[in-house]
Design a protein around this nucleic acid. Sequence first.
DNA 1: CACGTTGTCTACCAGTTGGTAGACGTATTG
DNA 2: CAATACGTCTACCAACTGGTAGACAACGTG
Lengths: 214, 214
Amino acid sequence: MVDELRYGSVVAGADTKRRILDVALDAFGRDGYAATSLDGLAEGLGIRKQTILYWFSSKRDLFEAVIDDTAADLADAFDEVSDSGLTGLEQVQAIVDQAFRLAVRRPEVLGLVREVTRPGSLTASRLATRVRPLFDRARDFLLREMHAGRIRCSDPAMLLLSLYSTVVGMVTELEVARTVGFEPTLRATVMRRRELMRFLRAALSPENPAPVIA
Amino acid sequence: MVDELRYGSVVAGADTKRRILDVALDAFGRDGYAATSLDGLAEGLGIRKQTILYWFSSKRDLFEAVIDDTAADLADAFDEVSDSGLTGLEQVQAIVDQAFRLAVRRPEVLGLVREVTRPGSLTASRLATRVRPLFDRARDFLLREMHAGRIRCSDPAMLLLSLYSTVVGMVTELEVARTVGFEPTLRATVMRRRELMRFLRAALSPENPAPVIA
DNA sequence: CACGTTGTCTACCAGTTGGTAGACGTATTG
DNA sequence: CAATACGTCTACCAACTGGTAGACAACGTG
């Protein structure tokens, strides 16, 4: 009772900022930007909205901080894969594994990705500039693997777009999956991952053993 | 001036309902449910919010009406394809064409699909039950084509999920496309469609058996 | 110990939200 | 022509929105 009056840095300190970011990621990822209110976030945190506005000057500011934070996480996750030295479909497999792990453990992250890549999103450029390097690296990877004859030749950027759509969709479209009869159980998820890899393997395998393109 | 006072059924009549549905589809599809306000819609229509609430008893009611309406449109578009009698990859091609046409001419529709298939969406079941028959038909189609040897064998429902993800993603992810360097021009769209078909052809062709990895 | 800094709070606020109540003009119909 | 149904409106409203102003307690430092 009396403790409640003893607010100040001792009670929470700067880790409040961390907690706000976490809860905000959750809410923005699950409900979207517009459907998330500062009051709601504050209530979930057991603090007042004004404390949020102390750490982040506005709702949009908070949103952008969440994006930056998440982009850093994503970059780390994929750096790990690309540093693994795997080649061809094995690296693709590793990325798919990573994506599914994310979908199971932190679905909000993928929700945020979905939210922020919505056509016309005002903050699209935010995640874009953060994630752009990842895309460039992935494109280079595809190009290399094409030359090495391990992946079917095509426009690497376009192919990457197809891959992205397929993987993110497969990982994100839970409601659609449910509609076609897959309840979101672990078993069904594992099956989805396996089918996805089969699909990608078919889509990426080089038709001819070693197509040489100048 | 004086005309404005002469409201009543003569001025607009029941086509007001139609106009509301159209504008609402636009807004819900572009901005999402939460970011759309009845006042905003009304202003865009040159009427008062209360008129909207006369035709639709609540915002949610309007949203569901829009979904039903859109589902009917989608069903028509795909009935057309499946009645065409095309087989194998040719029907797939026809569906992709249909999807791209939709993306160019009525992007809001795909925006609505995206909105309503969001994980945890409260109205997911709405579109789901409406679109379910389409999915079933598509699955049967895939199964038939597999037996006929025109499409690579796999679990048809799972394969359908992959196809859905790829096509909808490719058609929807405009911001991601921009990030990898494709401005949303007509030319780039045509290229995206072509690449998508190449991708799907590779993924579906039976004569491209995936190397089996346990 | 005095004093500024930091982190949280209470108290507000103006604007917007979805929604209700009811007036009013028009058209239809007995 | 009276009565009724219909479609739109004006007038509100309580709840909620993001955001400001400023009090206040704890801490760190001279």
